[in-house]
């Protein structure tokens, strides 16, 4: 229980850290990609009888490298490379799950998240790698911002766009794999996007977007875990529903109290499917 809250707090910091840049670059699909690859990684761990979180981290990093390779070698649209990697992740997961005959409680705890299944080993891995990711993204903050705003302009100005992008993909892979222990594979990418979407309803600057996103994610995770614990639910659902509740409140307060100012509906960042290429 305490482990779940400690891990949850880290996840609540990680998801918006990554999410804000994924949303601003309209690359939310990358969240889906790494969660599907993580599922394959978990299945591989179960199948091979090794620690599933470790195989998930390994396979996600492998997929991150694969994504980079696809984008560079074939100069593919960001979207298309991601779609290919998603297909790879799911199909591999399906095969490994059937091979391992792993439709069991372990797998379900990875799919839907868990309050009780988080072990000391999980917590250790989540905290150590989590701090690493936070430090990395904090250090690359201004580069990630200008790349999100105008990638070509950043490149022309001499920003090391390829290096920053590659590091960011690794940070994303780690975030999703670590978060899946708490919110579950099926709902990780929601926790990446929904708090940011809620923040965008109220924010009047980049800075305030970041602060709101952290605030909302922390509330959603803590409240969601609390509900899950007392009602004996899988936490993924309660966490993401809570964050959707926050989103609704944010959207309504913008509408009725004029918070966050007026923006045209069609300029909303969230929900546009077009990829911009990483």
């Amino acid at each position: 229980m305490q482990r779940a809250f400690a891990a949850g707090l880290m996840v609540a910091l990680l998801c918006p850290t990554i999410g804000i840049f994924l949303v601003l670059r309209r690359l939310s699909m990358i969240g889906e990609m790494f969660s599907h690859v993580s599922l394959a990684g978990v299945a591989l761990g179960v199948f091979a009888g090794v620690y599933p979180l470790a195989t998930a981290v390994g396979l996600s990093l492998f997929a991150a490298a694969g994504l980079e390779a696809l984008r560079r070698t074939y100069r593919m649209f960001g979207d298309l490379a991601i779609a290919l990697m998603i297909s790879f992740g799911i199909s591999l997961a399906v095969i490994l799950i059937s091979l391992a005959q792993a439709f069991n409680a372990t797998l379900f705890s990875y799919l839907f998240g868990s309050v009780i299944a988080i072990t000391g080993q999980d917590l250790q891995l989540i905290l150590i790698l989590g701090i690493l990711v936070l430090a990395l993204v904090y250090a690359l903050q201004k580069e990630l911002f200008i790349i999100a705003f105008d990638e070509e302009g950043a490149r022309a100005a001499g920003v090391r766009v390829d290096l920053v992008n590659a590091l960011f993909v690794v940070a994303t892979a780690l975030t999703i794999t670590l978060s899946m222990r708490v919110v579950g594979i099926l709902l990780v990418s929601s926790l990446i996007t929904v708090p940011v979407a809620a923040a965008l309803q109220l924010s009047r600057s980049y800075r305030s977007t970041v602060l709101y996103a952290y605030l909302f994610a922390i509330i959603a995770v803590l409240l969601g875990l609390f509900i899950a614990f007392h009602a004996d639910l899988a936490p993924g659902g309660s966490i993401v529903l809570t964050s959707l509740g926050i989103f609704t409140l944010a959207a309504l307060s913008r509408k009725f109290f004029g918070l966050g100012g007026e923006r045209d509906e069609n300029t909303s960042l969230v929900g546009t499917a077009e990829g911009k290429g990483l």
Partner: peptide, 26 residues
């Protein structure tokens, strides 16, 4: 750029200094 981009004028102009500051410097 996407007109829903949540950044102030100040934040956008400051980003023009990214490369001259170099990695890791704020």
């Amino acid at each position: 750029f996407h007109h829903g981009f949540p950044a102030t004028v100040q934040e956008v102009v400051l980003s023009g200094l990214t490369a001259s500051l170099g990695l890791f410097k704020r």
